[in-house]
């Protein structure tokens, strides 16, 4: 019976503690709203706007303010860089994503980014953040400023010629608008994600930057057959590739005679003799109008 009494009293105590806590909690929230720990220019804004509800339903009040990305960068370096990297490009080993790519990859709104910073991501180590709203908006401004930008101008090449060039040179490995190969990345919407200069560089010198999932490997299986492909995944004991015939194949490493990692991309480097600058303009115009 003592046990049950103890249980009853401990429940009662817990409830009392809870009430006290809730009260304390509310007080400390108020206190926090009036913190003056950030640059002086923010103080007034914080006091005026910091308590307004549902901020993320509104647009970024600093959208046109050129100082906002700078101020946001200061916050980013202090609060975000340890997981997302000093350059915002993420740290793969802790699943921290590349924030420079998120805008173009997922058509994010400012509000969605605001909400993610404010609320965190449940089930991950991305925590909620209690910064005043203006500071969160400044972070949004900063993140937009470091976003990898696409090809902004409307390209004026011949899209029809570009379509033919794509079919002849690219479609065996790359997909656009649902048709083409799978050995290389899908190029639908690629002009929105990458700048003109970056796209030209990828065509002229594809080995310079090779994304994860497209690194080349040459293997020899137990029967002595050679096979080339791209590494999709790998652990200490196994290798998962897409071979050059675009078939997914998994191997136990002990079943392979050789594994040769290659620095060269599987994609050929297109010199001006193969694709002129005008050809590339046409090709990219075709990709742009496909969006």
């Amino acid at each position: 019976m003592t046990c049950k009494k103890k249980f009853f009293f401990s429940m009662l105590l817990q409830k009392l503690r809870l009430h006290k806590k809730l009260r304390l909690h509310n007080e400390s929230r108020l206190h926090k709203e009036y913190r003056h720990n950030f640059p002086a220019l923010l103080i007034t804004t914080t006091m005026l706007l910091g308590m307004a509800p549902a901020w993320s339903q509104q647009s970024n009040p600093f959208e046109a303010d050129p100082r906002a990305p700078y101020a946001g960068g200061v916050i980013f370096r202090a609060q975000c860089a340890t997981c997302h990297g000093a350059d915002g490009k993420g740290i793969a080993s802790i699943d921290a994503p590349d924030l420079t790519l998120m805008w173009s990859a997922r058509e994010l709104s400012d509000n969605a980014v605001f909400d993610t910073i404010r609320n965190g991501i449940a089930g991950s180590i991305m925590p909620p953040h209690s910064f005043p709203d203006p500071e969160v908006w400044m972070l949004v401004s900063y993140l937009k400023s470091i976003a990898v930008s696409g090809t902004n101008r409307a390209l004026a090449g011949n899209a029809e010629l570009g379509r033919e060039l794509f079919g002849a040179n690219c479609a065996r490995c790359h997909r656009v608008a649902g048709s083409g190969g799978s050995l290389g990345p899908d190029l639908s919407r690629v002009t929105a994600r990458r700048s003109y200069a970056a796209l030209v560089e990828s065509i002229r010198n594809p080995t310079a930057v090779i994304a994860d999932g497209y690194r080349s490997v040459l293997i020899t299986n137990a029967a002595g057959e050679r096979m080339q492909g791209t590494i999709k995944s790998e652990d200490a004991f196994s290798l998962q590739i897409m071979d050059s015939n675009q078939q997914l194949r998994g191997f136990s490493k002990t079943s392979l005679q050789t594994i040769e990692r290659q620095l060269e991309s599987l994609m050929p480097a297109f010199n001006p003799g193969m694709l002129s600058d005008a050809d590339i303009e046409n090709l990219l115009t075709y990709l742009q109008v496909q969006q």
């Binding site: 926090k32 720990n37 950030f38 370096r77 202090a78 860089a81 990297g85 000093a86 209690s130």
Partner: peptide, 17 residues
Amino acid sequence: QSAPGQANFGGVVFIDG
């Protein structure tokens, strides 16, 4: 800039992944 309840590492790190 130290503030209660906010993490502060005092700088950034570049990692060669």
